[in-house]
Design a protein around this nucleic acid. Structure first.
Length: 814
DNA sequence: AAACCCCTAGCG
DNA sequence: GCTAGGGGTTTG
């Protein structure tokens, strides 16, 4: 029973990881590692997580006592705590930020200081000196009629320091300052269940029930229920004054009320599948993973689309569960992977907890608790589910491990796949990474033997892999076809005539990329960002895809006044219009971020598609990535070069992945699918190898290229970005950071610094962005250099409202 | 001399 | 992250 607790405050205090508090006698034994507590921090009170216990305070420190306990059992297991501490260290973030990611901001609270106005005899009984500030404060409080947060007063009177005035007001008893605690935004909900304890004997029958029809009815209702129980809220709905009836039944010991927690469990569509028989290939993969279950090991499962990877996960997890251990399954984006999730639910039922960003805070908290208490032994979810509080983990699965959505793009910029591997190491369990198109990072580990390389080269379906044809657009006029070549148009027509379904992939939403004037050459740009506005034809607007600004499409050029505006570059809306005019009788649907803004529309479209009620489905990578999109007979990749044109060394890798994924949709039943890829660069390795279904060939060429240019995975990368309203200052600070980076890496001949340079989008929401990149073969050096550079400009940045962020192993180079 | 402002250490 | 308090600067 420890008398002292080490805690980490939430939200993060950058420099603080551990503070020690005395545990009051009454809370001894209850304060355990992994519970939330409220502690005094300076003049305020905040939520903190207990990260350790001690019998003695640290030398020379007097510890204040902690105030209260927020959980009756740990919500973060010790090994997860270890992972979070690693995460903070590796990604150069405050520990409190990493902890907040797991715990969730909705579960934290802190106190706020409020100013209370005292009843004054005469408001203008002239204060000692004619003080304008004091008058304004009093007026403000009088108007509010209730205590006002101190910060709100400071803001309203437009000053930062009102301390002295306020101090004197407190001393003279005009006001007082109170410290009030807000309730956490999420609480545990409780419910009362009434259970039949025994059946009445004759005496009770006649005395208690016979003459009381309400009591009688309620009791009979309970007896008829499964488990002879019902919740109080159900009873209240059915019987008026249920509470009184229950009370008298309870007095006679016929029933008993049990207070229990109510769980807000997200409802998932569950489809029951008969578990299919495993192919020998699948079986040997399952055997290999099970054989690795003794300890930490990373396995890369490289399996083509429709090779039955999900079934492998399910079987392996069955095995893990039978040994009394838990499992963690990561999927890229829940909205696109409903079917995978549904299969887990169908197989394992309530043992599955679901974690993703679309849950309400209440649902998330309830799923979190189900996992933390071992009621749910399998957690399935997107990126942040890698932090699910499962203890005694037996397996971690990362499905579609190459997917970019595993990288968090703000706050703690962690990579969920890499974090999963570290979690496996900490927990001593295997980590299974699955993909048809592995990231080059993982593939290299596998071919060099650090990961066990498992393969599923064949489909489980009778249908052979699709035939992929490359359409060379060079020298072709595709404007007439609205971006579609004659060959693709012909194929779409034929497929429709044959009653086949067609999938068209174009990775750009909106109607057109930009609006330009052929009179003066002007491109219409966003006023707050340095990007062209995208044309949206559905509501005839121009939109900025970065700040979401919208304005109507002008009829004339705002610069030269000519009626000479034309749309430049093909988007999904325009493609939709083209297809509709091409096949007036066809049922056409579009899936992209704009079309799925309405909740439920995505699922609706996919259901219609699955039922064969849609002939042509077109869209962005949503249709490429979606596990939910079943096979088709024709797939068209409208602009395969789009992802190659991005100034990012991973462009080729992404292009290969997208083409392979969307091509993987082709083929249904026993029909071999046909895939047409439109491109100006048919000989590019990413496109040529994707067409040949040759991942390994592509990976070898691409790795050689990366080696030549010293890019990851052969080196490790880091990025530091400076953002602020003052362009010159941003650039200067970034240059200063770059110098600090050079200095920090001087000892390493391979250490390379690139920049400072304006980010690809130099300005977003009126804030300028500059960045600098570093590369070295040593990850530790990259990280220490980033930390050094950040602290070199931190104080200058803080005072001039400039943001500095660092990214370890960045994925997006923009 | 008093009021104001900016900075930054320290929070247990 | 927030805050109090130090020290430098402005103001009457």
């Amino acid at each position: 029973v420890s008398a002292f607790a080490h805690v980490t405050p939430l939200p993060a205090v950058a420099t603080l990881t551990k503070l020690t508090y005395a545990v009051p006698e009454t809370l001894r034994g209850l304060v355990r590692v992994g519970v939330r507590v409220v502690v005094p921090l300076g003049p305020r009170r905040v939520t903190a997580l207990v990260v350790g216990l001690a019998d003695q305070p640290p030398d020379g420190v007097t510890c204040r006592p902690l105030i209260s306990l927020m959980d009756d059992c740990p919500i973060v297991p010790e090994k997860l705590l270890e992972l979070l501490e690693w995460m903070a260290d590796y990604y150069l973030a405050p520990v409190g930020d990493a902890l907040s990611l797991a715990v969730g901001r909705a579960l934290t609270t802190s106190s706020q200081r409020v100013v209370v106005l005292h009843a004054t005899e005469t408001p203008d009984a002239s204060p000692p000196q004619e003080d304008d500030l004091e008058r304004r404060i009093v007026a403000l409080l009088t108007k509010a009629g209730k205590p006002v947060p101190l910060v709100a007063i400071a803001q309203a009177v437009g000053r930062r320091s009102i301390d002295r005035t306020l101090h004197s007001m407190v001393e003279r008893g005009v006001v007082s300052i109170d410290d009030v605690m807000a309730a956490p935004r999420t609480k545990t909900q409780y419910e009362t269940t009434v259970v039949v304890q025994r059946m009445p004997d004759e005496l009770l029958e006649s005395t208690l029930l016979a003459r009381a029809p309400k009591r009688r009815a309620l009791f009979d209702h309970l007896v008829r229920q499964p488990g002879r129980r019902a919740t109080m809220s159900e009873l209240n709905a059915l019987f008026p004054s249920a509470a009184a009836a229950v009370e008298s039944l309870a007095e006679a010991k016929l029933v008993r009320s049990v207070k229990s927690e109510r769980f807000r469990t997200p409802q998932e569509y569950v489809e029951v599948h008969e578990p299919p028989k495993l192919t020998p290939e699948q079986q040997s993969v399952v055997d290999a993973v099970v054989a690795a279950s003794g300890g930490f090991q990373t396995l890369l499962l490289q399996g083509v689309t429709a090779a039955g990877k999900t079934e492998v996960y399910l079987r392996t997890i069955e095995e893990v569960l039978s040994r009394g251990k838990g499992a963690l399954v990561l999927v890229p984006e829940i909205s696109l992977t409903h079917q995978v999730v549904a299969r887990f639910r169908a197989r394992f039922g309530d043992a599955v907890a679901l974690l993703h960003s679309d849950l309400t805070p209440g649902e998330r908290w309830d799923e979190w608790r189900r996992i933390a208490r071992g009621q749910a032994r399998i957690a399935v979810g997107a990126r942040s589910a890698v932090l699910a509080p499962i203890s005694n983990l037996g397996l971690i699965v990362v499905d579609e491990e190459h997917d970019g959505s595993y990288k968090q793009d703000d706050g703690v910029r962690y990579h969920a796949r890499d974090t999963a591997v570290m979690r496996g190491r900490i927990e001593g369990c295997p980590v299974l990474l699955g993909s048809a198109t592995p990231s080059l990072e993982s593939w290299r580990h596998a071919v060099e033997g650090r990961y066990q390389h498992l393969r599923l080269p064949n489909r489980v379906t009778p249908c052979p892999p699709p035939r992929i044809e490359v359409i060379d657009l060079r020298g072709q006029d595709i404007d007439a076809g609205g971006g579609l070549s004659p060959a693709l148009i012909e194929a779409i027509r034929e497929n429709f005539a044959a009653r086949g379904q067609t999938l068209l992939f174009l990775n750009r939403r909106g109607y057109a990329r930009s609006l330009q004037c052929w009179g003066c050459g002007l491109t219409l740009d966003c006023s707050a960002c340095s990007v062209a506005l995208t044309v949206h034809q559905n509501d005839r607007s121009l939109r900025c895809h970065h700040c979401d600004a919208r304005k109507p499409i002008p009829s004339h050029c705002p610069s030269c006044g000519k009626d000479a505006l034309f749309s430049q570059g093909l988007g999904t809306q325009r493609l939709e219009a083209t297809v509709r005019s091409l096949l007036p009788d066809a049922r056409v649907a579009r899936l992209d971020r704009d079309s799925t803004e309405q909740r439920g529309l995505l699922a609706e479209t996919l259901t219609a598609w699955r039922r064969g009620e849609v002939d042509v489905l077109l869209g962005t990578q949503m249709i490429a990535k979606g596990h939910d999109v079943p096979g088709v007979t024709l797939v068209g990749v409208v602009q395969a070069d789009l992802s190659l044109a991005v100034p990012d060394f991973r462009g080729a890798e992404r292009t290969f992945q997208l083409i392979s994924q969307v091509a993987g949709r082709a083929g249904r039943g026993t029909d071999q699918g046909r895939v047409l890829v439109q491109t100006y660069q048919g000989e590019h390795p990413a496109i040529a190898h994707a067409a040949a279904h040759d991942f390994d060939g592509f990976a070898r060429i691409e790795l050689a290229e990366r080696a030549d240019l010293a890019y990851p995975p052969l080196t490790r990368m880091g990025m530091l970005r400076v953002e602020g309203a003052d362009r010159a200052l941003v650039e200067r600070l970034c240059a200063q950071a770059a110098r600090a980076l050079v200095e920090a890496g001087a000892s390493d001949p391979d250490f390379a610094v690139r920049g400072p340079a304006p980010a690809l989008i130099e300005r977003i929401k009126d804030r300028y962005r500059f960045h600098v990149h570093v590369r070295s073969t040593r990850s530790g050096l990259v990280r220490s250099a980033l930390a050094h550079a950040r602290s070199a400009i931190a104080s200058a940045a803080r005072t001039s409202r400039i943001r500095v962020l660092v990214d370890v192993d960045p994925v997006d180079m923009f």
